[in-house]
Design a binder for these strands. Structure first.
Lengths: 233, 233
DNA sequence: ACCTGAACACCGTTCAAGT
DNA sequence: ACCTGAACACCGTTCAAGT
């Protein structure tokens, strides 16, 4: 907190630009002035550095947005962990509900997050952990891998704002899957699910997801729930 | 189809730029090269005109996108009308399902549409008509105005990609409501719903919607439907 | 009434140059 | 290793000028 610009005792002119500070400042700009205000030039300015210097810490604007999203999803994970330390051992329905509301709370702190989320084509470690966690909750709650998988899609588009895949056909093919070693440690439940699905080869793609099927699943579950509400009237 | 550029028999140099041609060409650009390719300069180029000339037909880029969205939602309405001429008189559930799938079909033709839809703050006549129609189907199917209203929100964010309101608090306040006269002719069911809601004044805002309530409604209906699926396993 | 061209204040990014 | 400054190819939009 002490000195961010100007001379220090050691003679350094300002706090060095780290990836950490860079992402933190980017989020602050988007929170304060909206996502459109987040440009490389503005970010450089707020860090006391020329815009071009940022390319030493981040590959480009796209990588910056990836990092920004990652940081916010980590916020969601932290929110969930805190909450479940206080109230552990709830059933799948209460847990998924609470996690969805936690995600929403973070989205309300960063209202630009859903729109940025939808532009991302790669999944970071935090997004994978978030999905893996919910998958674990569902399976432990008695869901088959198949039903849990559809549920993840349905919750994803509704709760996390990952609506993109629902509408862009073939988008899942373009999604970059991180390296298998990382996945194994990060996403045990996803790995177990993939293992349980008979597939031709050992590729780690989620390519068997069918957009139209997932869309209809989510729609039909919703219609079913609505019919139940109507009947209860 | 005959001549779009060059001299004609009458001596006119090219087809005049109309709002119709302008919107049509804008959609074609987005379809062909993505929404990022749709710039005022590119649009002018494809119309054989300087970019600045476009401002005589449309107020600016924002108005252009409004018009583009309007045109696509009109496509959804046409799709629905065609389908229901063939298969009329289905119950609310089948009708809402079919309309959602029709919307999705149009979205698949214009994959950029959901993302643009989410950036709009005003509702055009087509969007209002689409919502009013579904509202009518629900009410006729036995829904109370209250349940139908929540349902519209739940379907909207899932099916039409209107996820924005779900995450941005106060966004509904910023939504511009067209003039009442237009509404009366265009949206009889919405007007009836508003009339049935006891409110302090005659303002036509949808300001009584509460984002958090709508989010939880959609989430809980989904969870309820999922629990039903699980029980059926 | 419609269209033009120069200009303004922005973008992301490349590249050669500095320390 | 980190940062700079000029440059390139773009944006949306304003404004005075043309026909």
């Amino acid at each position: 907190m002490a000195v961010t610009r100007g001379a220090t005792a050691t003679g350094r002119r300002r706090a060095p630009v780290t990836r950490e500070r860079l992402v933190e400042t980017a989020v602050a700009i988007a929170d304060a002035d909206g996502i459109d205000a987040l440009s490389m030039r503005r970010l450089g300015q707020d860090l006391g550095v020329e815009a071009m210097s940022l390319y030493h810490h981040v590959a480009g604007k796209d990588a910056l947005l990836d990092a920004v999203v990652e940081r916010c999803v980590e916020e969601i994970l932290a929110e969930i962990e805190n909450e479940e330390r206080v109230a552990p051992d709830r059933d799948w329905r209460a847990t998924v509900r609470a996690r969805s509301l936690a995600a929403r709370r973070v989205m309300l702190r960063h209202p630009w997050l859903p729109s940025v989320l939808q532009t991302r084509t790669s999944m970071g470690a935090a997004v994978i952990r978030l999905h893996d966690g919910v998958l674990g909750v569902l399976v432990e709650g008695g869901f088959s891998y198949d039903l849990a998988h559809h549920t993840l899609h349905a919750l994803g588009s509704r709760v996390l704002g990952f609506a993109q895949e629902v509408f862009t056909p073939g988008a899942t093919e373009e999604v970059e899957i991180p390296d298998p070693a990382m996945m194994a440690g990060l996403a045990p439940h996803i790995m177990a699910m993939l293992a349980s699905v008979q597939h031709d080869g050992p590729e780690l793609t989620l390519g068997w997801c069918d957009d139209q099927t997932e869309f209809e699943f989510g729609l039909d579950v919703l219609l079913e729930g609505l019919a139940a509400r109507l009947a209860r009237t």
